[in-house]
Simulated scan of single mutants.
Amino acid sequence: MTNIKVYTTNTCPYCTMVKKFLEDKGLSFKEINVQEDRKTAEKLVETTGEMGVPQTEINGEWVLGFNPDKIIELVN
């Protein structure tokens, strides 16, 4: 089973695009809003070295930004 986590903020248009893309593909995911959870935001930066969102973790692999091709590659 594919484990997908999408790290987002409230005002990020690319976050919305990633979530809509996953929904359109019928892929379930867990959304983690780092704007509302500072501790998780800090851990995310420590883990990936990136401050931007969206960041999508798929089975332990990371996708920065809205990159549908990379998401599909990691899901398959």
Rank of each mutant, 00 (worst) to 15 (best):
T56M: 09
N59P: 09
P54N: 08
N10P: 10
V18K: 09
V45W: 08
C15R: 03
N10R: 13
V63Y: 03
T2L: 11
E57T: 01
V34W: 02
I72Q: 10
E73M: 01
V45G: 01
D24W: 03
N67I: 00
K19A: 10
T48Y: 02
I58F: 10
C15S: 11
V75K: 06
E61V: 01
E46Y: 06
G60Y: 01
V34R: 05
N3P: 00
E23N: 15
E42F: 09
T40D: 06
L64E: 00
C15H: 03
N10T: 15
N59T: 08
G26I: 06
V6G: 06
E46K: 12
T47Y: 03
T8N: 09
E57I: 11
Q35Y: 11
L64H: 08
G26Y: 07
S28E: 15
G60P: 02
T11G: 07
Q55R: 10
N33F: 04
F66Q: 05
T11P: 04
W62E: 02
L64R: 02
I71A: 07
G26Q: 10
V6M: 06
V6P: 08
T47K: 14
D24S: 13
T56P: 06
G52D: 07
L44N: 07
D24Y: 03
E50K: 13
E57D: 09
D69L: 02
V18W: 09
I32Y: 06
G49A: 03
Y14P: 07
A41F: 12
K25N: 14
K5C: 02
M1V: 12
N3H: 13
R38D: 12
P68Q: 03
E36K: 14
M51F: 12
Y14A: 06
T9P: 08
T40L: 12
K70L: 12
A41Y: 11
Y7D: 08
D24F: 02
E31L: 06
M51H: 05
L64T: 10
D69M: 00
R38K: 14
N10V: 12
S28I: 10
S28G: 15
S28R: 14
K5S: 10
L64D: 00
P54W: 07
R38G: 03
G26N: 11
L44Q: 05
T11H: 12
K30T: 13
V53Y: 06
R38L: 14
L27C: 15
K70G: 04
I71W: 06
T8F: 09
D24Q: 13
Y7H: 08
M51E: 07
I72F: 00
Y7W: 07
S28T: 14
C15A: 09
M17H: 13
V18P: 07
L44I: 05
T40H: 08
E50F: 13
C12N: 05
M51G: 15
E46G: 01
D24L: 07
P13V: 09
